[in-house]
Design a protein around this nucleic acid. Structure first.
Lengths: 147, 147
DNA sequence: ATTGCTTCCGTAGTGAGGTACGGGTTTAAG
DNA sequence: CTTAAACCCGTACCTCACTACGGAAGCAAT
């Protein structure tokens, strides 16, 4: 695994960043990473800039950004587009908070149902099943798409 | 729209339950709903049992169950399989709680970054971008798959 | 020189939960 | 009787982020 001055093959790069080779190639196709020109008949080499780019992508993904959004973020990298970046961050924060409160509603409802099932009952019926059969009129009355 | 004694066509059924016709047919293909035999040369009719089934599915989906899991739940509908149902509910509750705490970590990290950006800075650099460029060493050090 | 692991490249498949299409019947209304 | 809407059916397509496949060619070690 020769690694002269941080010059890597795609395999080494991928392993170092903890992603698959195919994933790197996929990011290239998506335009998230540039493909280095190949040196006369063969194998491309990557430096730590490429590695940093991968870290950027994974970090952004961890925060919930989609690959399209990450592409947008990347255009803001050079220069002082802090306002735009912050705006994207705020949007994402809003959507994360929405997801959290949605899940908290579910958590509450599910917890109630499970509790009711755990409390001894006549074994003739199941409170959880009964609620589901009733279309779950409970707790949350909002009709909205599941997806 | 003749509706003699709650007998519906697939279109009426779908509209009543708030789903698409194609969705009903998809659930049939998935085995979540039975297809009523068609009366000599044509159009099937559905009763409120079918409607209840759709409500069951949507309610379960709202609670975070996948269609496969819903299939499993449906096998527990008849009889006193309350223990199994509760078990599934508990598993789902655990996964919902995991998702919540994951999102809360994200919420916190994102909030910090956005705050830092909002606090006036020299405009020479963007704290949010800087963090992403560093691969976001911050807040959460756990390396795990994003998907 | 041969084995055996990478790399290169394009294309196709995965999973979840649907949605859309196209071509053929039926049925309800006018 | 004709037309428009609704139904039947199979198959293909969608999103998202990958993952796999297959064949050719390179490169490192034995």
């Amino acid at each position: 695994m020769l690694k002269k001055r941080n010059v890597m093959t795609i395999g080494t790069l991928a392993k170092t960043a903890g992603v698959g080779v195919e994933t790197v190639r996929y990011y290239q196709r998506r335009g998230l990473m540039s493909e280095p020109e190949k040196p006369y008949g063969g194998i491309r080499h990557y430096d730590e800039q490429a590695l940093a780019r991968l870290h950027f992508i994974r970090a952004s993904q961890w925060l919930g950004f989609s690959l399209d959004e990450i592409g947008e973020l990347l255009t803001l990298q050079d220069g002082a587009h802090c306002d735009e970046a912050r705006e994207l961050g705020e949007q994402k924060l809003i959507s994360v908070r929405r997801k959290i409160s949605h899940l908290q509603q579910i958590e509450q409802a599910l917890n109630e149902l499970v509790q009711k099932c755990s409390a001894g009952h006549g074994d003739v019926y199941c409170p959880l099943m009964a609620s589901l059969n009733d279309g779950f009129e409970d707790a949350t009355t909002d009709k909205h798409k599941v997806r």
